[in-house]
Each structure stands twice: as structure tokens, then as C-alpha cells.
């Protein structure tokens, strides 16, 4: 049996809101240690992995490992209408493992709304251990998420693809669209401690800009974001969720390759 409780204004729900423009259904696995969500967009270009340890929830109980396909779009839609200070409880039982029950309790505890959400069948993916994957990357950029968001906003003025390349002591974002081009150089400053650009080998990736903008939205939930690039490999965008939590979200974005 699984039971987890969270307040409506929790980061978990904000994150679900933020990933909804990419995915509507997700594979959610729960164990005694926490919750793991994995999802891929309809075109198979972007992959999202979200990890939230059990202690981040107001209440968390899972006595048996569970894996479920959840229409998170429908779930968020239902929760949106709840009072902002309301408490949300999500339950799944072993006896009837075809749906989950989501209950919303008002702050005064005088009103409870419950709805049952049918689980969906999802194809599961085998993604290698992400931390191991990150160690192999040619270049990593740790930067304040406000910088990342600002760069993505600049880039969104050009409709097309973005090339992210390593340059001497930094990286370069270059977008070429119908109306012109845009070039952003992001360098390692001498004194800043919240920027760390490490380049093991030169690398350049071409990526679809619209996904970058979706990633920027989620990075708003964190102070820092980390981009990892490797030749011919998906871009990895990683950020912790919130300030003092061990929750984290990782995006993989498949590059454009010579056809």
C-alpha cells in the first residue's frame, strides 16, 4: 500500500505543473525510500527523471515497491481547483491496483473531495544510472538558473535550433532562425563561486529550442542548474528542486544529428 500526503503549495506539485508542457503521462515508481517519476515527451526527444525522497513529503508510507502509469495532466488538473492551503493525499492499494485515489482536504478540515484516477499502461525505459552518465561527459556547466532562464529567453526570440559549443574558458549558445541569428557567450568569471565551467574535450550539440524553454521553466524552482554535454549524446540538464532538499530533476534532450 502507498500513501503520501503533501500540501498544495508543495514543490512536488509545482514541478508537475512545470513539466506538463512536455509530458502528460508518467511512469511513477515508489519504494520505502521515495518516489521516482520518469516520462518522455510524445516525440521521444526529451526524457524527464524526477526523484523525491520520502522525507520531503508531509507523510509517506510505502510498504511494497510499486510502479504505475499516471496521467499526471489529469491529476494536476484536478488538484488545481483545490484551496491553496489544502492537503492532498494520494493512495494506491494492492487489492485494487487499477487506479489511485487522490483526496483533497480543505485547510479547515471540514471538506474532503476524493477522486479516483485510472492508471494507464506505459512502456518503460531502461535508462542507465544517470550519475555514472554524468561523469563521462565532455563538458559541464554549473550556473545560476536565472542566467540559464535569461539565455533561453534571448534564444526564444529566434525560432529554430540552438548550437551549444565549448569555447576557451566558456560555452557559446548560437541560434539561427529565419529572422537572423543570436550569439551568447557565457564565460567562467575569475571570482564567482556559483559558476563552474569545466571542459574536458571540445563539444558542440544542436538542439531544438522549444525544449530548452521548457527546461528553463523548471529551473525556476532551483537556484542552480547544471548542463552536461558530450559529443553525439543527449544534453543533460540537472537541477535540485528547492534549497534544502535532496529532490532533483534531470532532463535528457536528444540532439539533432547529421541526417
Amino acid at each position: 500500500m502507498l500513501e503520501l500526503k503533501l500540501v498544495k503549495e508543495s514543490l512536488f506539485l509545482n514541478v508537475l505543473e512545470a513539466i506538463l508542457d512536455l509530458v502528460a503521462v508518467a511512469s511513477v515508481s515508489c519504494s520505502s525510500t521515495g518516489l521516482k517519476l520518469q516520462a518522455m515527451d510524445a516525440k521521444g526527444v526529451a526524457f524527464i527523471s524526477l526523484l523525491i525522497p520520502a522525507k520531503e513529503f508531509q507523510f509517506y508510507h510505502c510498504d511494497k515497491d510499486l510502479s504505475m502509469g499516471i496521467a499526471i495532466g489529469d491529476m494536476v488538473e484536478a488538484i488545481r481547483s483545490a484551496d491553496k492551503d489544502g492537503t492532498i493525499t494520494i493512495k494506491a492499494s494492492d487489492e485494487n491496483f487499477r487506479n489511485i485515489t487522490v483526496s483533497i482536504e480543505s485547510p479547515e478540515c471540514n471538506e474532503t473531495t476524493s477522486f479516483s484516477l485510472l492508471l494507464v499502461t506505459l512502456k518503460r525505459f531502461c535508462i542507465p544510472e544517470l550519475q555514472g552518465l554524468l561523469k563521462k561527459y565532455d563538458a559541464c556547466v554549473q550556473m545560476p538558473s536565472v542566467d540559464f532562464m535569461r539565455i533561453c529567453k534571448y534564444l526564444s526570440n529566434v525560432d529554430g535550433d540552438v548550437d551549444i559549443s565549448t569555447i576557451d574558458k566558456g560555452i557559446r549558445f548560437f541560434a539561427l532562425g529565419k529572422c537572423g541569428c543570436l550569439n551568447v557567450k557565457y564565460m567562467q568569471p575569475e571570482k564567482a563561486t556559483d559558476i563552474d565551467i569545466s571542459v574536458q574535450a571540445p563539444v558542440s550539440l544542436t538542439l531544438d529550442l522549444k525544449y530548452m524553454n521548457s527546461f528553463a521553466k523548471v529551473s525556476a524552482l532551483s537556484n542552480q542548474v547544471k548542463l552536461c554535454l558530450s559529443k553525439g549524446q543527449p544534453l543533460v540538464v540537472q537541477c535540485k528542486i528547492g534549497q534544502k532538499t535532496k529532490s532533483r530533476i534531470i532532463y535528457l534532450l536528444a540532439p539533432k544529428i547529421k541526417g
Partner: peptide, 14 residues
Amino acid sequence: GRKQSTITNFFVRA
């Protein structure tokens, strides 16, 4: 031209 690759090009479906 370049074409969009997919995540499954890099990771095997379980």
C-alpha cells in the same frame, strides 16, 4: 540538414 534523434537512439527500451 540535420535530423532530430530520439532518446531511444541512445537508450534501449526495457
